[in-house]
Design a protein around this nucleic acid. Structure first.
Ligand SMILES: [Mn+2]
Ligand SMILES: [Mn+2]
Ligand SMILES: [Zn+2]
Ligand SMILES: [Zn+2]
Lengths: 146, 146
DNA sequence: AGCCAACAATTGACTCAGTCTAATATTTTT
DNA sequence: AAAAATATTAGACTGAGTCAATTGTTGGCT
């Protein structure tokens, strides 16, 4: 999802703005970052941006499938530019540290439910929960950080 | 998790109150209900209860493992009294309708990540996402309801 | 039965993450 | 360069939940 971000935006019928470019770059250099983390990153680069511009842009980019949003329990939403595959996530219950886990199957839905209750299932989302090496060491308690 | 709720509370070192009993019964008769739904249910039965009492009780019951909390993206937390197994969930993207999906393996974590990054993984949470029969029919758009 | 300490419920303010709206500014088309 | 389309901003607002102080209830112990 790197390369010509400008191109990418245009291809999806979006206007090219400094804010959007900066947001794309921020997501790319901080995978699984929260909106607030990304706001800080973007401000460090382009000086200033409104909260709403960031939320709005993240929304439109997710909608256009240029970004993916994950919403793990106890955390604000996180964003990544690794889209179009069906990877999963490994999350530390204490500090929220998040890793990508490659899907063994590849395509979604990568697991089948025994009983589908008539649903049209399009995804099997898998979240591996645990404790990261550093939180294990320090005996950190369960207070996931945003 | 039915039977003598009073007993159950005592066994876990919790005082028995009308509120707690009513909340337990409400969760049991509305699996995967949200806090606000449960508040309504409880009020219909015992007349009145504070929001805080419900949130507080749900918290302590989850902590003591008498209830389980699930937090699907785009929905407030949901509660159920089916604990101690490792079942999964099937959720409608449009209306939030939620079903239990039995785990094929049984014990958690029921899936192994290819790379564990040194984590101590205790759970593999699986959420099957899709569209329920009724939302399929009416072509409902993706606006999960609380 | 009555007392008391521990525990629970209520109230109301507050937080966090995010949305809505109207006004302004920037991009893109013509 | 002007107009139309789209994006950004500021600020009020919402939903879901928490925090802290006060009041009320429960249950163990004389
Ligand atoms: Mn990822
Ligand atoms: Mn369930
Ligand atoms: Zn950690
Ligand atoms: Zn549905």
């Amino acid at each position: 999802m790197q390369g010509d971000a400008e191109q990418l935006l245009r291809e999806h019928g979006l206007q090219v703005t400094a804010q959007r470019l900066a947001i794309l770059r921020a997501v790319s250099s901080r995978p699984h970052g929260t909106a607030d983390e990304l706001i800080d990153d973007v401000r460090a680069v382009i000086g200033s941006i409104s909260r709403q511009a960031v939320f709005g842009t993240l929304n439109v980019l997710v909608e256009k499938n240029l970004l993916r949003r994950i919403q793990p329990a106890g955390s604000p939403a996180r964003y990544e530019d690794r889209v179009g595959d069906n990877h999963h996530h490994l999350i530390c219950r204490s500090c929220g540290l998040t890793f990508d886990i490659d899907c063994i199957v590849g395509a979604a839905p990568c697991l089948v439910a025994e009983e589908d209750h008539g649903f049209e299932i399009d995804e099997a989302e898998v979240l591996f929960w645990g404790r990261c090496p550093s939180c294990k060491r320090t005996g950190e308690t369960d207070t996931p950080v945003g």
